Simulated assay, not measured.
Amino acid sequence: MANVVSNFNAFSGPSLSPPAPPAWRPDGLFDPAVADRYGVTPREAAAKIRTGIICNPKSHRNRSSVEATKPFLSGTVLAVTPRTQAELAEVLTDFARHGIELLVIDGGDGTIRDVLTAAARVWTGAAPRVAIVPSGKTNALALDLGIPDDWTLDQALTAARDGTVKVRSPIEVVRKTDGTRLHGFLFGAGAFVHATALAQRTHRAGAFNGVAVGLALCWAILQTLFGGANSAWRAGDRMRIRYQGGAAPAYAAGANADTDRARYLMLASTLQHMPVGIRPFGTPREGLKTLVVDAPPRWLAAATPLIVTGSPAAWLDRAGYHRIDSASLDLSMGSGFILDGEVYPGGDLTVREGKPLRFVVP
């Protein structure tokens, strides 16, 4: 069983928080000015909000492991370190049964993907607010939300007290053969799979977050430019793509055709801001956005700076660089895909915008 720091039954017991009625507004949130005057601390605030904390002890620089969270524990705050997917599902089920209002995820993008994937099976209706403590090798969601790299659990609990949130919808990837679902924020296929493998090497070399992503993508482009006409990077992977709705532009017929063809790269994301300031989808905006690049990529040296800076140049689409917004798409491919850093086998998939979630932000 997962390492449960506090007993789940504590949720039904007496609260350990001291009485401070003047600090509370009618909506159940703290009034920061009054709270400061009465010396109410973030841990006491958390004791008023039923909080479940998922800690990933394997995260690159985990700050709030089980030992570090002990000072924050009370009758309504639980910290858990699940070691397996089965334990994670069990913990989240217990969290839901005890009515948590705040789910804290201490880890990187991969941890967030695993927790949100499991949570979507538990909370089929309204989900609790989510707070991120970015402690992984890559923290793209935290960067998009404006969460600083050094944000602590204490600061996350303070923000939860003050009630500031941003809404983001994850990508939902559904495997048609068995209905299994994944939830994440950055989907990639083709050259992006190879680039992510290179990013793992840059992690071992000490580069993290957007730096690792940027270095990997630069190396992938160099491999494509100088790898020769028969390079595997240039050949791409065969994909069948069919957009089902949204704002796919009419000029994207080549990318939208329901036929198998080689694609150099496919990216999809619901993030509004990407690492290191790149803009592969153009102007930052809400919704599910995709970039599809035909293989072999044409005029890559000229197109790359325009793609990464979000240029709307019309010739990019004619050259095979298609930016398409859509609420949902069907995708068939034999090769694998990446979701938030993890490789999964290909197949017949639906990629769509998932249910909106409320994230606690500074």
Score class of each variant (00 low, 15 high):
9 N>F: 06
10 A>Q: 10
12 S>D: 13
13 G>Y: 15
13 G>R: 15
13 G>H: 15
15 S>V: 06
19 P>C: 02
20 A>T: 05
21 P>D: 01
27 D>R: 08
38 Y>H: 13
40 V>G: 03
41 T>Y: 12
41 T>R: 15
51 T>N: 10
57 P>Y: 02
57 P>K: 03
63 R>Q: 14
72 F>E: 07
79 A>D: 07
81 T>L: 01
95 F>Y: 14
97 R>C: 00
102 L>K: 10
106 D>R: 01
107 G>N: 08
117 T>P: 12
117 T>F: 08
118 A>P: 03
121 R>M: 08
123 W>I: 04
124 T>L: 07
126 A>P: 09
128 P>E: 00
134 P>F: 13
141 L>N: 14
141 L>G: 07
150 D>R: 12
151 W>M: 09
162 D>F: 15
165 V>T: 15
166 K>A: 09
166 K>C: 03
166 K>V: 05
167 V>L: 06
167 V>M: 03
188 G>W: 02
195 A>L: 03
198 L>P: 03
198 L>N: 03
200 Q>L: 02
204 R>S: 11
208 F>S: 00
216 A>H: 14
229 A>W: 14
234 R>H: 10
237 D>I: 08
238 R>I: 09
240 R>Y: 13
240 R>P: 15
243 Y>G: 00
247 A>L: 09
254 G>D: 13
262 A>R: 14
264 Y>L: 00
265 L>W: 11
267 L>A: 07
273 H>G: 00
276 V>W: 12
279 R>V: 00
282 G>T: 03
291 L>V: 10
291 L>A: 11
292 V>W: 11
302 A>W: 14
302 A>K: 10
306 L>A: 10
309 T>I: 01
311 S>Y: 14
313 A>H: 14
314 A>N: 12
318 R>K: 12
327 A>F: 13
330 D>N: 12
334 G>H: 07
336 G>W: 15
337 F>W: 13
339 L>A: 09
347 G>I: 04
350 T>E: 08
354 G>W: 04
357 L>K: 02
358 R>G: 07
361 V>W: 15
361 V>L: 01
